[in-house]
């Protein structure tokens, strides 16, 4: 009964999301949806190491590596971004390999600090390595529409691409969380020593989680850059956009859960755009004050994130169903 209802609800939601571009032709609304999907995917990817309690503030590093790999191949060598997707994924994973040294050696906040430093160093490299990256000027993706170039005349294809990415990463995150790796990560997050004593190679689990996370982030970045046409070190390795934002979404939605990132990204992305637009014009940085207050409120009052507020609601609904039938 209940699973049937869920399937029906999911089908309606899927059809609704597929139909959005047909009814809303406003580029603003389409852009907003696309951005939300990108952030759902980015946050869900960021969240994979968080299953194991690892809190990264350096995912901009993987984003930038993926973005630059595909863009350099396309702009400098004319190689299709369809190949760039793989190159971006692999480059971001190589970044993950480098960051896995502090990941395994350092505990708690020290890994988080190392991850920030890692992204900042890469940003500096992107600025200084002018022959490859054009430095601070950045790279422009030439406008040559076509699937091979991942360039389109309307926003519709990217709406579906971003939707597909979001669904893909959610499904992967769900699969990882319910696999052996997911159980081992959750055990390590709860009690690293107990997990080790129970025969779990926790270092290996954290490493695999970071590989998934970095690779997916790099892959998403490739699409994001081709959606935006421009790439420069300040945005590709932006701490605000690609390190803090996924982390904020994750904390507010519910870190280490499958649906937390989804809820966090759905709430925070439009809110962020709205705040930037209205408050940013009154006083620069005012939008960040609101962000900060929200973060403090959630961490204090709902440490499990918004998803933890919804868990009892789902249970109530379940018991309410049976009592409704009695009546």
């Amino acid at each position: 009964m209940r699973t049937n209802k869920i399937i029906v609800a999911a089908a309606i939601l899927a059809l609704g999301l597929l139909a959005v571009p047909l009814y809303f032709t406003s580029t603003f609304i389409l852009h907003m949806f696309t951005l939300v999907f990108f952030y759902i995917a980015l946050t869900a990817a960021w969240n994979i190491p968080a299953f194991g309690g690892k809190f990264s503030l350096g995912h901009a590093a993987f984003f930038g590596l993926g973005a630059y790999a595909a863009s350099i191949l396309y702009v400098k060598y004319g190689i299709s971004p369809l190949i760039g997707i793989f190159a971006g994924t692999v480059c971001a994973m190589l970044g993950g390999v480098i960051l896995s040294f502090p990941l395994i050696r350092l505990k708690g906040p020290f890994f988080t600090l190392a991850s920030i430093a890692f992204a900042e160093v890469l940003r500096m490299v992107a600025i200084d390595w002018r022959s490859m990256t054009n430095g601070s000027v950045g790279l422009n993706i030439p406008f040559k529409p076509g699937w091979l170039n991942l360039t389109f005349t309307s926003g519709m294809p990217f709406y579906y691409i971003a939707l597909g990415l979001a669904v893909l990463v959610i499904l992967l995150a769900w699969w990882i969380r319910s696999s052996a790796l997911g159980y081992h990560l959750r055990a390590a997050a709860a009690d690293e020593d107990a997990a080790k004593a129970l025969g779990i190679n926790t270092a290996k689990s954290h490493f695999f989680a970071l590989m998934w996370s970095s690779g997916l982030t790099g892959m998403i970045a490739v699409f994001y850059v081709f959606y935006n046409y421009v790439l420069e070190p300040g945005t590709a390795f932006s701490m605000d956009l690609f390190s803090l934002q996924p982390a904020m979404n994750g904390i507010i939605g519910g870190m280490g859960t499958v649906w937390g990132p989804v809820i966090g990204a759905i709430i925070m992305t439009p809110l962020g755009e709205f705040l930037r637009f209205y408050l940013g014009t009154i006083q620069q940085g005012l939008n960040f004050v609101v962000y900060g207050l929200m973060l403090i409120a959630v961490v204090n009052f709902v440490p499990g994130g918004i998803v933890s507020l919804m868990a009892p609601w789902f249970k109530k609904k379940k018991s309410g169903e049976s009592s409704a039938r009695d009546n």
């Binding site: 319910s178 696999s179 052996a180 159980y183 081992h184 959750r186 055990a187 997990a195 129970l198 025969g199 779990i200």
Partner: peptide, 11 residues
Amino acid sequence: MVPIFAHYKSA
């Protein structure tokens, strides 16, 4: 189940 996953990969 956590430690058993070391021997059996299927949930």
